[in-house]
Amino acid sequence: MEGLAGATEDEALRRRPLRIGGRSVAWVAPLLVLAAVTVLDVATGERYRFVSWIVLVPGTAAAVCGIWTTAAIAVLSLATYLALDTAWPGQYEAGLPDFLLVGLGGVLATLACVIRLRRERGMLHMRDIADTTRRTVLRPLPPLWAGLEHAALYLSADAEARVGGDFYDMQPGPHGVRVLLGDVQGKGLGAVETAATLLGTFREAGYHETDLAAVAERLESRMVRHRAYTAALGRPDGDRFATAVLIGFPAAESGVVEVVNFGHLPPLAVGPHGIRPLPAGNGVPLGLCDLVGGLPPLWRVPLAADETLLLVSDGITEARDASGEFYPLRAELARAIAADPGRAEPRRLVRRVREGVLRHTGGHLADDTTAFAVRRARARARAPRAPS
């Protein structure tokens, strides 16, 4: 973070798209404009002078080039203006006023470039802060952990959107493995703080509590306390809540999973033979259970050995294309599984979701997008051979 605070102009330019083979070619655009103005002025003769249009060249450079490149192109534009204008007889010359216009345009373009790069560095710094915060909340998980194999997807929304509150984690313990995925209402650092609070509680309760219902109760209690805390501070997000789905893989039963759903999208069981949703449970979000008099019910659902549980945030199901159509998650997955049953494997499943969402939205995400796929590992992956 400290390094980004002192980011140079080159660092900001490295993230711009006008690059070929790792080298910037942004200078080509203003030079093409300069060449076009030159050809146009020479070709139209003395009756139509276009030499003053050279003032557009530094402005073009300011939009895509660095400071020194913009300044150099501004000087080149001024020299080209002099060469073109003095080549004509005196009565056809544009003269000193347009010369001053081109010179002033070059100065203003260079200043505009300085301001643009300063704002870009600030934006990159804020994006780095958001990414660092997100990585702190969403800790790295081993790809094969406690007999489960999994894959995760997190896509940040467009730069204009603030960081959101999507979260996920898995916690092995003596009573099995617990998985949590949720979405805190709202955006900004307050949402990230709430997500971190819930994940901390989940990691402790998921390990120590015998029953999944007790883990759910601890999460609800923590959310209520966090809301009271933020309200006592006088913050405007004191009524924040979170949707979440809590999954338990019991240690003693391999063909069953337990589900508690706090108003979240129901998980999908994806296998070679198709897709089926797990019960939604009709639960309310975390922090609101007192409004309905209790926690959501705990469901025990059979899960085949070749089925993968897919948990997603509403950033996926509410992703829209240019015409406003929602991303058809289940239909897309059903077609993919029918064509290749092996796509039910967690990594391939998450990769398919990622590609489908980005293709559907054209890469423009309106909300953070999260998916978590998990299933019991095959026996050969869970128990590697002992060394001879």
Rank of each mutant, 00 (worst) to 15 (best):
V224A: 13
L268C: 06
F249A: 03
A304K: 13
A252T: 03
E258T: 07
L358H: 13
R347N: 11
S221K: 14
G294E: 01
L233N: 05
H273G: 13
T308M: 11
P272S: 00
G356T: 02
G324S: 12
D340G: 12
P277R: 04
L303Q: 02
G271Q: 05
V284G: 11
A228D: 15
L311N: 11
G362S: 06
L286N: 14
P266Y: 10
A280N: 15
G362K: 05
E345V: 00
V312C: 15
H273S: 14
Y327I: 10
G281V: 03
A322I: 06
G283D: 04
G294M: 00
G293Q: 10
V350Y: 15
D314R: 08
A319Q: 08
S313D: 07
L311Q: 10
I275E: 14
L298H: 03
G324D: 12
P266R: 10
R354Q: 14
D306R: 11
P267Y: 07
T361S: 13
S254C: 06
P267T: 05
R240N: 07
R218I: 03
P302W: 00
H360M: 09
F241H: 13
H264T: 09
R352D: 15
P302S: 02
R354P: 11
P297D: 00
S313I: 09
R335I: 02
A338G: 11
S313H: 07
W299F: 07
I316V: 15
I275C: 05
G263Y: 09
R330A: 12
W299Y: 06
R351M: 10
R335G: 14
E325N: 13
T317L: 07
P341W: 02
G238R: 07
L303N: 02
A331V: 01
L219A: 15
R343G: 12
R343F: 15
G255D: 05
D321I: 00
R347M: 07
G271H: 09
L329S: 05
E220I: 02
G342F: 03
R354F: 08
P296A: 01
P267N: 09
R351V: 04
G281T: 07
E355G: 10
P302G: 04
D340C: 06
C289S: 11
R225K: 07
E307Q: 15
R227A: 14
S254I: 04
F241E: 04
P346R: 06
L309H: 14
E258F: 04
L298F: 01
E318S: 15
L268I: 01
P277K: 03
P250C: 01
M223T: 14
G342K: 04
L288V: 13
L329F: 03
T243H: 14
G274Q: 05
L295R: 08
A336C: 06
H360L: 07
E217D: 11
P236L: 00
G263E: 13
G363V: 00
F262S: 07
V259A: 01
D290T: 09
R276T: 13
A344S: 13
L246W: 03
S221E: 13
G315W: 04
